[in-house]
């Protein structure tokens, strides 16, 4: 494969992929998609959130799961970083802690694909002073 150095190369490569594969066009309706939020504050980044986020971006696409991967700030679970919040369509968000690549794979296979809960969930059924007001 030739090297990609310029925007023209990038466009050419993209067109090659488009003709070779059926590139899914994702609508921007987040309600019908899996939403993955990776906590990307200092605590998260220092604990390895970057490779986790790269993993979700790559693997959701590769495993044909319509999803949107974004980042959030610190959720207050610094002790359990990297943390990932997953929201399946029509369900409440679930936060997983201590996520490494192995666990990220398990989250995709068990929770995202089959809705099966796995170890390492951080309970989010609390109310903060702010949310009470």
């Amino acid at each position: 494969m030739s090297q990609i150095k310029s925007l023209a190369d990038l466009k050419k490569k993209r067109e090659e992929i488009k003709t070779g594969l059926d590139v899914r066009i994702k609508s921007i309706d987040p309600e019908n998609h899996v939403q993955v939020k990776v906590a990307m504050a200092t605590c998260g980044i220092a604990s390895g959130a970057k490779p986790i986020m790269e993993f979700f971006v790559e693997q959701l696409d590769r495993r044909n799961i319509p999803g949107v991967v974004t980042q959030t700030g610190c959720m207050g679970y610094c002790f359990a970083e990297p943390t990932v919040e997953i929201k399946l369509p029509g369900k409440d968000p679930v936060v997983f802690g201590y996520v490494d690549l192995k666990k990220a794979d398990l989250i995709i296979e068990k929770y995202i694909k089959e809705g099966e809960l796995i170890d390492g969930i951080i309970p989010v059924n609390y109310e903060t002073i702010d949310s009470k007001e």
Binding site: Q3, V23, V57
Partner: peptide, 15 residues
């Protein structure tokens, strides 16, 4: 939101 494109952009920057 396309992992192929992101990988290509990454390669472009690194090159």
């Amino acid at each position: 939101n396309d992992s192929h494109l992101l990988a290509d952009i990454k390669e472009m920057i690194n090159e």
